[in-house]
Nucleic acid binder design. Sequence first.
DNA 1: TTGAAAGCGATACCAG
DNA 2: CTGGTATCGCTTTCAA
Lengths: 337, 337
Amino acid sequence: MARIDEVAAAARVSISTVSYALSGKRSISAETRRRVEEAARELGYEPHAGARALAGRRTQIFALTEPLRADTHAPTHMAFVLAASVAARRRDYDILLLTDEEASTGMRRVAASDLVDAILVLDVAPDDARVEIARSIRIPTVFIGIPDDHAGLDCVDLDFEAAAELAVDRLTDTGHRHVAMIGQSEVAYRASNFPPRVRAAGAARADARGIRHTFTAAGATATEPAVVRAATTAAIDEGATAFILHAAEDTHEVVLATIAERGLLVGRDVSVISVASVFDATRLSTPLDTIPLVPAVSCDAAVDLALARLHDASCAPVLHLIPPEYRSVGSVAAPPA
Amino acid sequence: MARIDEVAAAARVSISTVSYALSGKRSISAETRRRVEEAARELGYEPHAGARALAGRRTQIFALTEPLRADTHAPTHMAFVLAASVAARRRDYDILLLTDEEASTGMRRVAASDLVDAILVLDVAPDDARVEIARSIRIPTVFIGIPDDHAGLDCVDLDFEAAAELAVDRLTDTGHRHVAMIGQSEVAYRASNFPPRVRAAGAARADARGIRHTFTAAGATATEPAVVRAATTAAIDEGATAFILHAAEDTHEVVLATIAERGLLVGRDVSVISVASVFDATRLSTPLDTIPLVPAVSCDAAVDLALARLHDASCAPVLHLIPPEYRSVGSVAAPPA
DNA sequence: TTGAAAGCGATACCAG
DNA sequence: CTGGTATCGCTTTCAA
């Protein structure tokens, strides 16, 4: 509404002084700054986004690409979108949405038109099509997740391997010799980038520590209670004393219910750890030790990385792995004698 | 990357001709247009968003405010965000996200800075704080949902009252004399704008048609299986021969399971209609007749309304109620004799 | 520490 | 049907 020249007139300074006073890009006397800020506030001045983008070569907008596939878990996805939005706003950035069909052409479009300063990529697939686009465009792109071929890309993600290893170590150190892992839907192990990493790292660490381990997916397309129930029962029958869950909330509840039906108590007869869960597994019907995947942490890091890349386009690509943290609420104990 | 003057040079015309040829805002000879389009394509020309916004006073961006409350149903919400994005892209618009804390201040900010051409409001509460902001800003705002005090506002929504009445009429016409309605969580009847409308309209129509009716919410905070199960059982015991469900997918399954456990068959012993469901109730374990709430329809209408308002800011405010449609798959039949 | 003025890259008016 | 150019509102260099 109000323009910069009106603010300048009200504060009795030049428009360049207003610009500098508000951006802080050069030193301004305290008195002048005060007058400018007061005038801006009284007039409800907000710089015109288009003019600022044209003159300043910054839009203060990040694109967020999210390919909402059929198997997308809505609550998790929403948590990431929200976290990205909050992280961006903290740095005075807005989020522009790029959904599925537009994920690829949209990236090219917003890059070519200088609509955004950087792109954040969500829900990364192992062979993600957005990888080659990121390489072909001029503006910084940060992946929240790690595609198979990530050479030259900026990526941020929880260190899923370390998380899986941490869980295995914790159980092994506590005395367990046989661990059952229960995972996500089978399709997730093909369409998404991190489930295979958790599975492989957990298995490798269990081998390294010399303990038995099994793995079962939660079903063909989603949590299938019968599959999960059967896997839990089989694991117990075969002598497993501990579970590592990397799965949706539903799956957790099925496992816990099955354990309870067997008359076993979590944290005494059976130990359970939830790995890389976005929901709060310490507040399930039976609270579980958790190595959480925190969207806010990932998205904050992604935004910071994008900003860093904006300042220095030339430095080496960053692969930022967030160290896992263990939250204990007592669902792990030594196995029964 | 490439600018308009480069396109002009390549096509050997003036920059104004390029602008007009590409926007179609004035007639251009076929030959000239061809040359311009070819030059633009070869250079990968995409107009600079900031420059266009400054000169043309149009950003081709809509803001979408979504206050992600704790009780927000993620899948439904995601469906609306996706639908809004697709609807906007069809009109060559992008979506800028405004989440919760920013929902109000964000609206003011994007309006004052001319960052967006219009605002779409999702997840409308009866006493929504965004109403007064919409009234105080200069740019068009369209509500997808109807707040209590909607005087002077542009609103788009499914005609929930008509949907509820349609369901009651269908059952009454088929011979039912006692209908049980099962609704959403109790909090939804305070925090959201349409559950109360469905409940009230259904009850009123049942009274008008002279049939018995009961209503039960799905629980205090979400679907509580025990509550839903008890309500279903009680309704059957009291002689209800039909159900109208306005609830989450989970709740549907609980009702259907309870009916089955009683040895009753939907579409023969008991009739069931799903009202205003966003998921596909015709594909539940037992397919149900549905009067669906289709996000794509609502969002298309909202985008069109925003565009209309952009062209003509002065015409009377629009309250666009989308007529409900009945989809029959055989879950309704005459009550047993 | 402050001011004047040259762009930024489009759109759309005014001419021809 | 096409071209020249003022203009949009800000950022930033150049001068003082």
